[in-house]
């Protein structure tokens, strides 16, 4: 279980908090959706879990261990797949994968194995020798995802992974996420603006607004028999009024 407890984060002294006591749990082996309007605090939460921002207050534990301790023992266990195409356009697909595996300190033999696995998973074998800037939008998204898999992570953080892709590529990516989580104890934290994506791929969700978690739990419980979009709009509107 990944437990977020009373997470508080402020970008600058005096600024309103980006996270204001956020608390929720993620079951290991689940695909957990993080829903919220722009500026709700989703990216800040993901950044803290990825180690990009320090924890100012509150605690995060993974399987009972503090985040820092857990990560120190498993340096490559959390991977972030950002919304941007965060790779090198002048390198080929294979070179990009090899580079991102290399900077995680993975030795040559293991790196080769991991890269092949990631390439196979994202179905990039046929374009392995093509430069990244020659790929279509859908293939770039797949490369972005494949890079996240080069370290064979246990926890995958996906930040809006389907922005700007065609329906076929979106379907492929969603299927890939489900397959990834199907392997024992692999966990996905998935942020998206698309309700149908969340409903398709996630087993649990947390709805975040103004730095607070408004609802969390299994998707069916949060929905309570209603349409997810209705629930989301109702909760976030209430939050805005408050």
């Amino acid at each position: 279980m990944i437990r977020f407890n009373g997470i508080y984060y402020r970008y600058r002294p005096g600024a309103p908090p980006a996270l204001d006591g956020a608390a929720f749990n993620i079951r290991r082996g689940s695909v957990h959706g993080l829903l919220g309007p722009n500026g709700a605090g989703k990216t800040t939460l993901i950044s803290i879990l990825a180690g990009l921002r320090p924890l100012q207050d509150g605690s995060i534990t993974i399987d009972g261990e503090p985040l820092a301790v857990w990560r120190a023992a498993r340096p490559n266990a959390i991977a972030l797949v950002p919304q941007d195409y965060a790779f090198y356009p002048m390198l080929t697909v294979a070179e990009n994968l090899d580079f991102f595996a290399g900077v995680q300190g993975i030795a040559r033999k293991q790196r080769r194995h991991n890269c092949l696995e990631a390439m196979r998973f994202a179905r990039l074998e046929t374009v392995a020798q093509r430069r990244a800037d020659e790929l279509s939008g859908g293939l770039r998204r797949r490369l972005n995802l494949a890079i996240g898999l080069t370290g064979a992570p246990e926890i995958l953080l996906l930040d809006e992974p389907t922005v700007g892709v065609d329906p076929q590529s979106r379907r492929f990516l969603l299927e890939a996420v489900r397959q990834f989580a199907a392997i024992s104890r692999r966990t996905v934290l998935y942020t998206s603006h698309y309700m149908e994506e969340i409903e398709t791929v996630c087993s649990d969700i947390a709805i975040v607004d103004s730095g607070k978690v408004l609802a969390q739990g299994p998707l069916s419980e949060v929905k309570g028999g209603q349409n997810l979009e209705q629930v989301f709009l109702q909760l976030t509107r209430d939050s805005a009024w408050e």
Binding site: A50, G51, L52, A79, L80, P82, Q83, D84, Q104
Partner: peptide, 17 residues
């Protein structure tokens, strides 16, 4: 600058580089 604009530097930081 390309690394910074594309978020690659951030990705590297997330990979503990």
């Amino acid at each position: 600058i390309g690394e910074r604009q594309r978020g690659t530097l951030q990705r590297l930081r997330a990979q503990r580089v």
